[in-house]
Write a protein that binds this DNA or RNA. Structure first.
Length: 438
RNA sequence: GUGCCUGUAGCUCAAUGGCAGAGCGCCUGACUGUGGAUCAGGAAGUUGUGGGUUCGAGCCCCAUCAGGCACCCCA
């Protein structure tokens, strides 16, 4: 017999966790749709070939298997490659620019750790088919709006551009090949510090002079305008970096015009981000309360979608890691913590009142009040106890006395108060409590 | 994938190589029209799993599974 346990890195999500997870997803969905994003769902299984050749070194983490028909299949690694496939496959049915969101699990055969699992849920947000800096700005604006709505204190979105890092590497005299080592090294800056980065750079064969120059540029700090001004002077001889800086300025103007509070973002020349397919703006959100790493990140990838479509389709997007958001929110005690989905518990006084109680429950539900019923009549004390244990706030009693008066007893188990009210008044009392709770 | 740490009741954790325990939770009752508090009682375990050493293993050794931390990488 199989052991009674989860497969490594795969988790169950019991009700207490699910209610917070759904709150997170509902919040993200609401904000996405508020910006006109449309939902998309794709299968968890893809042809292995679809995923291969898109991810670089990370391909070894793909879960691969063969089905009964001998097809080479894989569990999706992210929701970006499936988006690329869908975009190519249904190009005629989609209209661009296309704003789409997608929520679901992806799979990576990594060593699990806190905030990191082999099955993990992401909420993806992409604008397909636009190279406008306003598209970048909108994605970043949603990111800030979402983290603010979820209650993250002191989060900051770090912004950079791939061609700024590239320019830093080039003006330091490095070849394109050496630039890869630069990305990896400077991305660790906040973890290992300037000396650590210098050591890493030297290890990858970069001269001390170049390493020092890189470190100097990468540590430029200040307001977005100050940082971009300094970079534009330092990188004035690099055409691509100059274009990138102009692009970032346009993104910043968009953020300002969209009303994103200026303390929620910052230009960080050291931000690299691992995924190899990014081509333009990159960003990630950090919070001082989660030193383990970024909360989430994203960027512009103008070439990936086109791999399937056969033409360039510029795209910018981001992925919220639901598991990580959930872990951090638990740790920081953020978000609502309902214990159950029900607001009302209808007791069964005795066998004679069962039908009336069930009718009352139906009335409550029709009024939009989540209602759970007792399943065994009698012993009201035990039924109150069950309601209380479940975390249901209101217990309703319909005994012979109440029925005779056309009333119902409503007991607020949270406050310990109880009143006997006409049925209509009881229902509107609960409806009121429901609205307060929202 | 490499290294290190951990695994005992539902949860948090005790137990010199010598009878497996506590707190919380859960169930029953005191209380047949009222939950939480209190009191009394109860259920609960092949000590992650499989081997080994030993008169005797929760404890020591090996393997394996799972979790955590550091690399690596990323959400």
């Amino acid at each position: 017999m199989a052991p009674i346990q989860n497969v490594k890195g795969m988790r169950d999500h019991l009700p207490a966790d699910m209610m917070l997870r759904q709150y997170i997803v509902n919040t993200l969905t609401r904000i996405s749709e508020n910006h006109g994003f449309e939902p998309l769902q794709t299968p968890i299984i893809e042809y292995a070939e679809t995923l291969e050749g898109k991810l670089g070194d990370d391909e070894k983490l793909i879960y691969r298997f063969e089905d009964h028909g001998g097809r080479r299949l894989a569990l999706r690694y992210d929701q970006t490659v499936p988006l690329a496939r869908v975009t190519a496959q249904y190009a005629g049915q989609l209209s661009f620019p296309w704003r789409r969101y997608a929520y679901g699990p992806s799979y990576r055969g990594e060593r699990p750790a806190r905030g990191r699992y082999r099955e993990f849920y992401q909420f993806d947000l992409d604008i397909v088919g636009s190279s406008s800096p306003l598209a970048d700005a909108e994605i970043i604006a949603i990111l800030c709006e979402a983290l603010a709505a979820l209650g993250f204190p002191g989060f900051v979105t770090l912004l950079n551009h791939r061609q700024i890092i590239g320019g830093i590497a080039r003006v330091s005299g490095l070849s394109e090949e050496a630039a890869g080592g630069v990305y990896r090294a400077i991305d660790k800056f906040d973890k290992i510090g300037p000396d650590g980065v210098r050591t890493e750079l030297l290890k990858s064969g970069i001269t001390p002079a170049a390493a020092d120059h890189i470190l100097e540029l990468v540590q430029i700090d200040g307001t977005p305008d100050e940082v971009l001004h300094a970079l534009s002077q330092q990188l004035a001889n690099d055409e691509r970096a100059t274009v990138a800086i102009a692009n970032l300025r346009a993104v910043l103007a968009g953020l300002t015009a969209m009303g994103v509070p200026p303390d929620q973002y910052r230009i960080a020349p050291r931000l690299a981000r691992g995924l190899s397919y990014y081509t333009g703006v990159v960003f990630e959100a950090i919070t001082p309360h989660w030193p383990e790493g970024s909360l989430l990140g994203g960027g512009r990838y103008d070439d990936l979608i086109g791999l399937f479509a056969g033409r360039q389709i510029p795209t910018v997007g981001l992925a919220f890691g639901i598991d990580r958001l959930h872990d951090v929110m638990l740790e920081l005690n953020l978000g609502p913590r309902p214990r159950t989905t029900a607001l009302a518990f209808v007791t069964l006084f005795s066998v004679d009142q069962v039908a009336d109680s069930l009718a009352l429950a139906a009335e409550l539900r029709a009024a939009g009040i989540n209602t759970v019923i007792a399943l065994e009549p009698g012993n009201i004390g035990k039924q109150f106890k069950e309601a209380d244990r479940r975390g249901v706030r209101f217990a309703l009693v319909l005994g012979p006395d109440e029925l005779a008066r056309g009333e119902v007893v409503v007991k607020d188990l949270q406050r310990g108060e109880q009143r006997s009210l006409p049925r209509a008044a009881a229902i509107s009392l609960l409806a009121e409590a429901l609205n307060e709770g929202k």
